[in-house]
Design a binder for these strands. Sequence first.
DNA 1: TGTCATCCCGCAATCGTTTGTATTGTTAGA
DNA 2: TCTAACAATACAAACGATTGCGGGATGACA
Lengths: 340, 340
Amino acid sequence: MSARTTLKDVAREAGVHISTASRALNPSTASIVNPETVERVAEAARKLDYRPHPLARGLRTNRTMSVGVIIPDVENPLFGPIIAGVESVLVEKGYSVLIGNADRGPSHADSLVEDMLKRHVDGLILATPSRDVSDAARDAQREVSMVLVNRSVDDDSIPAIVGDDHAGIGLAVRHLRELGHERIGHVAGPSWVSTGKGRRDAFLHWIAAVGLDPDADLVEEAEWYQVEPGTTAALDLLGRHPDLTAIVAANDLLGLGCYRAVRSLGKVIGVDVSITGYNDMPLLDLMQPPMTAVRVPYRQMGADAASMLLALIAGEVVSPGRVLLTPTLAIRASTAPSGR
Amino acid sequence: MSARTTLKDVAREAGVHISTASRALNPSTASIVNPETVERVAEAARKLDYRPHPLARGLRTNRTMSVGVIIPDVENPLFGPIIAGVESVLVEKGYSVLIGNADRGPSHADSLVEDMLKRHVDGLILATPSRDVSDAARDAQREVSMVLVNRSVDDDSIPAIVGDDHAGIGLAVRHLRELGHERIGHVAGPSWVSTGKGRRDAFLHWIAAVGLDPDADLVEEAEWYQVEPGTTAALDLLGRHPDLTAIVAANDLLGLGCYRAVRSLGKVIGVDVSITGYNDMPLLDLMQPPMTAVRVPYRQMGADAASMLLALIAGEVVSPGRVLLTPTLAIRASTAPSGR
DNA sequence: TGTCATCCCGCAATCGTTTGTATTGTTAGA
DNA sequence: TCTAACAATACAAACGATTGCGGGATGACA
């Protein structure tokens, strides 16, 4: 709470003009000032514990050195790694990260974007569902650099970093096929969410690709990415096809829903029915049995988004469209060779 | 990316001097300017989509309207609710939240504090372990308002919002006692972490309080708050006391470690041995069996910390020391009446 | 000795606000 | 009619930095 030391103090201490002190302290301009003066100023700055005032600097340079990150729900463990990834690369470059938690619905996300613009962030990273993006974000894009993460927008007008769902579902389906499964079902996410539709389509594609019959009846859509809807959907699916030996869930929570459904039918997970999740969220390996899941590199997703954003801010031309990150498969006990 | 509209533009549009425009737009000074002028200025501001520049304002008023939150590990689901709580009350008041992820060790936390100070945040909320706090934080406290959350510092020189571990452990022990358990063990956290020691002491206190023998031999300390060390500690404990019918774990992950230990001994959780966790992290209710756990109100913890910080910033005298938040008990299938 | 580059450095404007003080115009009181 | 009081607004100085521009000192060279 004490009086801060300003550049003026440093200049006085070093016996130079404030502008000289400024140049001396700034690496990119230090070359045009006498080396020993630079040293003297640096010494003075050190002695006085000088810290440049980011507001004053930002006011002059018209950059806040901050970027906003808007998350649909901070309490969802999924977003921790994304934030961590973003933070790791931005802090490195001297930026700081403002986070906005849009847990009060789509319009809340809009107002957060608005807030961020007021604060004149240098860039924006959005992880909110695409539907929310459309309205406020588009015109925000005119004011500030912007990158989407884990979501994309239909026309790819905003650069996006997303997981390769097609490849991910492929990993799961091929894994099950290699284990000998021939009757594989899919519990899909809501079709109005981009991932819901994308993974569903990918599922049918890969089923055909591994030589099985891509019957749309093998897919049951859950109302929402939660355990309960997953159970309901799985029960429906298993009701129609009691002979299924494997289920590919569009999401970890749906997968856990499948766990419950399978158990309630008196069958054993990983023996009678194999199940795969998607995302590989924390603790999934501690479930009983540990769940095989497609792992999406969320942390890297955040890091890549941040890097791309920095490039945009720097004015580099970034090819728009979406960057696909390749998922891997974490194989655990919920999948096993088919009984027959 | 377009040219921003400044107060000057608004003033020109409204046909008044810039200072008049400033006062007209500021609710606390609008009273000293002619009401119809106020309206005219407001109209102009609306028309031009004027947004005050936070940097310029902050430079003048010496406040950034931002607070820093430092988290030991953003990827840990535990901190999501804390962040959400903090964010919810701060955004409400027009502050924005800078988050720092100290996942590269204690010194990293220090450098983040340093970064935050450079940015001249109006306040700081630290959730990092107390040991890390000591060094950099103390002198940071002289420069900026500061509140700890989920951690406290020995001499209570920094206000802290923490869960009431004593009460929480009491909930678990009394619950087990009421179920008829008489031989209850404790898998403790590391004693050099404040919660480790606190919960251990509380355990022995409550064991005595419910009329059992507070034998220190009933406690086994895990090396770290993780599953694996929990298993090791539980195996040691059960090795010494094969007749234990219940274990109070100092942490959910340690509790899951106990799950493994109990299973590896061929016993059934919730039948042969009851287990309680601590924190009640997400997904704990999806474990097999769902784990009974002490639930700490993390979101409220964040919210309270933020409120207290606002009070500090406003210059109100806040009684130092720690605020204890009362936990509750989420009773699930991992605890059941004692067999005898 | 005079001229000119070269190198450092100081001067001052500027970023967009807020806010203390001066100025203007209006009205009331004597 | 003159002045005091007051309201409403304008002026200008900050806040702390960056940066184009100009000027003084120094040295080289003729």
